[in-house]
Amino acid sequence: MSIDIDFRGPLFDGRAERAIQDACEGARDKVAEFAQQHALRLMHAAFRHPTGYYESRVTTTNVSSEVALVHDQGVVYGPWLEGVGSRNAPVTRFPGYWHWRRTKGVVASRGPAIAEREVRRHLPEMGG
């Protein structure tokens, strides 16, 4: 007696693994894009005398296949604008705009739904 087992399909030929990787990278990119756009919207609405330079320095860097970093490229007065610099209140009256902290909170609450939509888009590729 013998049994022949034939393994084929997306799980065995690599298609599912590629789809999972695409879903993860897509989710990372969509959440980072949302975070960058949200931070820029807050800056545009709050900055009293914008020069455009700070906003032009806001960018996204893919740290790994799972992690993206939205940042201001280390602009020296970035901490002051955020409100965490040594020259913020109580040293001066300026408390900061809190654009990064507020963005972080919004991304924490809305990011999972954004990521889920991207993963669902790739589900058909995972199942055949």
Rank of each mutant, 00 (worst) to 15 (best):
I5A: 04
D6Q: 14
G9Q: 07
P10R: 02
F12T: 05
D13I: 11
R18W: 01
A19L: 04
A23F: 01
A23G: 05
K30Q: 15
A32R: 02
A35S: 02
A35H: 02
Q36H: 09
H38F: 15
R41I: 12
L42A: 05
H44Q: 15
H44T: 09
A45F: 02
A46D: 04
A46T: 03
F47E: 03
H49F: 03
P50W: 00
Y54D: 01
S56K: 07
R57Y: 08
T61I: 09
V63W: 08
S65H: 14
E66D: 15
E66C: 13
A68N: 03
A68I: 03
A68L: 06
Y77S: 05
Y77F: 10
Y77I: 12
L81G: 00
A89Q: 11
A89F: 10
V91P: 12
V91A: 14
V91F: 10
G96E: 01
G96W: 00
H99R: 10
H99D: 05
H99K: 12
W100T: 15
W100Q: 08
R101Y: 13
R102H: 08
G105L: 09
V106N: 03
G111F: 00
P112Y: 02
I114E: 00
A115K: 01
A115F: 00
E116K: 09
R117A: 04
R120S: 14
L123N: 04
P124H: 11
E125K: 14
